[in-house]
Design a protein around this nucleic acid. Structure first.
Length: 895
RNA sequence: AGGGAGUUAGCUCAGUUGGUAGAGCGCCACCCUUACAAGGUGGAUGUCGCAGGUUCGAAUCCUGUACUCCCUACCA
């Protein structure tokens, strides 16, 4: 057995361990197995992206579940993948091209797509490398890219199938348009920002009169596309004008005055200009009133020929020019400051323009109905549950999904239009002729599908659907539906909802049972992490600085049901310290096991219970508690409770007390006693390391390799539970727990007196423990040497109170046991500190006494409260009263 | 505007059947005690947002209210 370094150094360990796991095939899953299946599909990150803290959090949770289930005997399958991320990736490559002064249009579609593939091949595996740094135990053999042949096949099949049942259609509609990207984007890709602007009041001359109608608008340039002005039908001011016409200034086009209840009489002038081709509300009015739709924009969002003299101007410039021209005509009567929310493209940041164009849509209502039902019935469960409402609310107000994008990177829409009969052919395989007229003059649609279209199929397209090969069928049979989907709440609508719809439609079953929603990672002040704020943190940097385990643990220990996660480097450092603590505790144990031979029978070789030291029995009791709670917490998805339970057990029980208790046994215990403790120590460390493994896999695997009692690898050893660890836990003892509680309290009381009186640790104290109960005396005698060592004593008497002149006194109460700790201070320190300390204690006790007195003398309390509550209070009151008397007595002895 | 979440120690947060408030970090004091100074021991710190109500008893349940954050939708 080699000895461990005196510090845990993650850099020496992580890569080596990871490679070993991977080479050993521990991450692999089997399509067919006698073990129960447990599967998770990883939300695929962008293929050209970097791992950020959000991924790190997301992956840590999934890896915890996978490792825990793997150790619990499941056939675990964690499927990794990457997303082609249409807009994001295309933009990145386009920017790269720009550096060499090449546009994608100059390059041409085919060449440009080739470039992106080159880019993908260069950077596509980068993120997989970063995931390995984090310790992700995915089944890499199953890694999938959203543009892989199999996925493309699934995409086409779904498209064709939905098209055939009229769930996918093409139509001329007003959509959100991103000028810089020259593509439509979905509602979800639009971010609304509050922008300070103005409301402009403009006069439209009423035809046949010299009067004007004043309209208010925030977007004066769109007046060029007005096809009506609208008033409220019951607005007395304007009723007589309904049906008449006004002339749009600047371009002198006549439009009708119409009436619709949509108009709010109170707002502005009560007259609204209607621009059906450039505003979503106006679009609806345009439809109901059968108005003309005049498009003013080009695909780049510049004014087109319909804008007359303003043709060629950008929207913002056109606005300025229009305002100037109106002003010079005297038709701009007022500008009021106004804050309105303006849609911005989440990808390019540009202002989104409502734009009339031919797009493909997916009807959502029909698909949404069953997807609502499975959530309402609990077949799919959200954790935390509060997201259920959010999900259902959205599903109830769902609108058709614009699935076409005017991009080059992505799944090209499998639709061909015929130049002869103008009809559309939609097909899973590339057709050679129009299915309507047989003409060979067909042309494939230029558009690609929204990236989320392929993402929606991810849970089954990654498992080989729709191909009918045996292994695909087996994979789906075993692993679909998956057990968990772990993701942030930002993509519930983009992704989660759509996966549920598609899963139900094409697999006739939900894609996952539980959706575990975690919060988003923010900086320590709760702000969004962003490049512009300069507050983003690179997880790889954190891993290099503190180790992957510390980063993982800092997530897991502070993960609270779906709340946003405030990241702090200081905290990671804290858990780095914990990793080192585990390392050093292991080092202590292993050093003390140098002369220890692990018996082949394992736990069965343990001596009989009564031959184990009380410390050994106690730590096994504590271990039993931990195994029970960790199991329960993990089952309940309370990961932070599980993490902190382990943290506290290791640091506050195992290290602070157990190791300290065993030191005297290791140095001067009898051989049989020492051997028994060695056996327990080895067993408890072994359990601890296994329990900890899913939380901090690298550290634990490295320690595990050095254990005298072990299997092939920690990652595939059994996860300890009270069910499977009965042989060891049979040595737990309630009596030992009581005994150790007393011993700990006595030691703490002595340390407290020492600390408060500033008695140097170098000074060994002589103390007396005043206790009348014979069984308690026995316990204290039994633990004589432990108390002597841990409290740094020279001598200890147990029995009568004796002479208490000039003595520090502390009272220890554990259950019904009462012990008086008496320390003569004469010659050690002056008594002021001790007098203060005792007075402080008395004050607190007297407060307790009056509180308890009040409660217990209240008849209603005695009548209504639970019996054990009352009994407990009675004991407390009695003890507190007695303590006050003893302490006051002690005070008098300082005179 | 509608919906959701939150308000507990200086900071980040726990507190699951109502029974005298907890952790980590930070802070103060002492200590290199042979696993660990990335450590040890001791200590200080809270009218649990505010106001009512139910109850013998409320951080916990109910009502109202203030503030913060998020999401969705937006009146030109």
């Amino acid at each position: 057995m080699k000895t461990l370094a005196d510090r845990y150094n993650p850099q020496d360990v992580e890569n080596r361990i990871y490679n070993w796991w991977e080479e050993s095939g521990y991450f692999k899953s089997a399509d067919q197995s006698t073990k129960p299946p447990f599967s998770i599909i990883l939300p695929p990150p962008n293929v050209t992206g970097f791992l950020h803290l959000g991924h790190a959090l997301d992956h840590t949770i999934q890896d915890l579940m996978i490792r825990w289930k793997r150790m619990s005997g499941f056939n675990t399958m964690w499927l990794p993948g990457t997303d082609h991320a249409g807009i994001a990736t295309q933009s990145v490559v386009e920017k790269e091209l720009k550096k060499t002064n090449v546009t994608r249009h100059a390059l041409g579609r085919e060449k440009f797509v080739e470039k992106i593939w080159e880019w993908k091949h260069e950077y596509g595996d980068r993120i997989y490398g970063q995931m390995r740094r984090l310790g992700d135990s995915c089944d890499w053999d199953r890694a999938t890219f959203t543009l892989d042949a199999g996925v493309s096949e699934a995409v086409r099949k779904v498209f064709v199938s939905l098209y055939k049942k009229n769930s996918i259609y093409k139509g001329l509609r007003l959509v959100n348009w991103s000028g810089p990207l020259e593509t439509a984007i979905s509602d979800l890709e639009v971010e609304h920002k509050q922008i300070k602007g103005f409301i402009y009041h403009i006069q439209y001359p009423i035809d046949g009169t010299s009067d004007f109608l004043t309209i208010a608008t925030t977007r004066p340039e769109t007046m060029l596309g007005d096809t009506a002005v609208c008033v409220h039908p019951e607005d007395e001011r304007y009723q007589s004008l309904i049906g008449k016409t006004v002339t749009i200034p600047l371009i002198n086009r006549q439009i009708k005055i119409i009436a619709d209840t949509y108009v709010d009489r109170e707002f502005g002038s009560g007259v609204v200009k209607i621009t059906p081709a450039h505003d979503f509300n106006d679009y609806k009015i345009g439809k109901t009133h059968k108005l003309e739709f005049i498009n003013l924009l080009t695909k780049k969002c510049e004014m087109n020929e319909n804008a007359g003299p303003y043709k060629g101007l950008k929207v913002a410039d056109a606005r300025k020019k229009v305002l100037e021209d109106l002003k010079s005509l005297g038709l701009l009567v007022k500008e009021e400051p106004h804050i309105n929310s303006v849609g911005h493209c989440s990808r390019s940041g540009a202002v989104v323009e409502p734009f009339l164009s031919e797009q493909w849509f997916m009807k959502m209502e029909e698909l949404a109905t069953p997807a609502k039902r499975v959530v309402e019935s609990g077949t799919v469960r959200f954790e935390p549950e509060s997201w259920t409402k959010v999900y259902l609310h959205w599903m109830n107000n769902i609108e058709d999904w614009c699935i076409s994008r005017q991009l080059w990177w992505g799944h090209r829409i499998p639709a061909w239009s015929c130049t002869d009969c103008e009809k559309t052919t939609v097909s899973e395989t590339d057709p050679t002729a129009c299915e309507h007229c047989g003409s060979s003059n067909i042309k494939q649609d230029e558009d690609v599908l929204d990236t989320w279209f392929s993402s929606a199929l991810w849970p089954f397209s990654t498992m080989g659907w729709p191909n009918a090969e045996t292994h695909s069928v087996e994979t789906q049979k075993t692993f679909y539906p998956t057990n968990y989907l772990v993701t942030g709440h930002d993509i519930i609508f983009f992704w989660v909802a759509r996966m549920i719809m598609m899963g139900l439609e094409f697999k006739k079953d939900v894609p996952f049972r539980t959706v575990y929603i975690h919060g988003l990672v923010r900086d320590s002040q709760g702000r969004k992490m962003s490049k512009s704020l300069g507050n983003s943190v690179d997880p790889i940097e954190m891993i290099e600085k503190f180790g992957a385990d510390a980063l993982r643990f800092s997530f897991l220990a502070h993960l609270f049901s779906g709340k946003d996660f405030k990241f702090s480097e200081q905290r990671v450092e804290g858990y780095r310290n914990f990793m080192n603590k585990v390392w050093n505790a292991s080092r202590f144990v292993l050093t003390n096991l140098q002369d220890f031979k692990a018996p082949a029978e394992g736990v069965k070789a343990m001596p009989i219970k009564t031959d184990l030291s009380v410390f050994d029995q106690w730590i096994i009791s504590k271990l039993a508690d931990v195994e029970r709670s960790v199991h329960d917490f993990l089952e309940a998805e309370r990961f932070s409770d599980a993490a902190t339970t382990l943290y506290q057990f290791i640091w506050n029980q195992f290290c602070d007390w157990y190791i300290e208790f065993t030191k005297p046994i290791m140095t001067s215990g009898a051989p049989a006693e020492k051997h028994a403790t060695q056996l327990v120590m080895a067993q408890v460390l072994n359990r601890t390391i296994r329990l900890l493994h899913p939380f901090c896999p690298f550290l634990t695997e490295e320690i595990y390799a050095n254990l005298p009692i072990k299997g092939a690898a920690c990652i595939v050893d059994q996860y300890p539970t009270v069910q499977n660890d009965k042989d060891l836990l049979a040595f737990a003892s309630k009596q030992a727990e009581i005994e150790i509680d007393i011993v700990k309290e006595v030691i703490t009381a002595i340390r407290n007196i020492r600390g408060e009186n500033r008695i140097s640790p170098a000074v060994k104290l002589k103390i007396r423990l005043g206790v009348s109960q014979a069984d308690v005396q026995k316990i204290l005698n039994h633990n004589h040497s432990a108390i002597m060592t841990l409290a740094r004593l020279e001598a200890m008497e147990i029995g009568e109170d004796g002479n208490m002149m000039k003595c520090a006194v502390a009272l220890v109460a554990v259950g019904t046991v009462q012990i008086k700790v008496i320390i003569p201070l004469e010659g050690l320190v002056d008594f002021n500190e001790e007098i203060k300390r005792i007075q402080k204690t008395i004050e607190k006790l007297e407060k307790d006494v009056s509180l308890l007195n009040g409660k217990l003398s209240n008849e209603k309390f005695v009548q209504n409260a639970d019996e054990d509550v009352i009994a407990n209070d009675r004991i407390l009151l009695q003890q507190s009263k007695e303590q006050v008397i003893s302490l006051k007595d002690a005070l008098t002895r300082f005179q």
